[in-house]
Simulated scan of single mutants.
Amino acid sequence: MWLLAIGIVFALLGVAGIVAAPAMVEAQRKQGMVPVASDEIDDDDRIAVTKGVGIVFATVGVVLVVYALV
């Protein structure tokens, strides 16, 4: 039961991260939370990495849900 709940949370967080990645990067930029070497890293790269982390979270969540249901 706990594994199912954790999987659902991971999947939801992953999907939210994928959808909200551009807004998160923009909010970080507005608040001055940019990386130290910001000349080398542009916003498109940061959005891609944020979406990538969201995909990993969503994948782990789906795997946990499937494992819990089997």
Score class of each variant (00 low, 15 high):
F10W: 04
V53F: 06
L12P: 04
A23S: 13
V70I: 13
I18R: 05
D43T: 11
S38H: 02
D45T: 11
D45Y: 13
F10H: 00
A11P: 05
V34T: 13
V62N: 02
V65F: 09
P35E: 03
I6H: 05
E40G: 09
L4F: 15
V63W: 05
A21Y: 05
K30S: 08
K51F: 07
G17K: 01
V49D: 06
I8V: 11
V70R: 11
V62T: 10
V60W: 01
V9L: 13
G7L: 01
I47F: 07
M1F: 15
A5I: 15
A21E: 02
G14C: 02
V65I: 14
V49L: 12
M1I: 15
G54F: 03
L64G: 04
K30T: 07
G54M: 02
L64I: 04
V49N: 08
I18C: 09
V63D: 05
I8C: 11
V62F: 09
I47Q: 07
V19C: 11
F57D: 02
T59W: 09
M24P: 01
V63T: 09
R29W: 07
D42L: 06
Q28R: 13
K51V: 09
G61N: 01
K30N: 12
Q31V: 03
M24N: 04
A68F: 04
G17D: 03
A27M: 11
S38F: 03
Y67V: 11
V65L: 06
P35C: 03
R29L: 06
G32E: 01
A21C: 06
I41A: 06
A5W: 07
R46E: 08
E26N: 11
A5L: 14
G32V: 04
Q28H: 10
L3M: 15
K30G: 02
A58V: 04
M24K: 01
V34E: 11
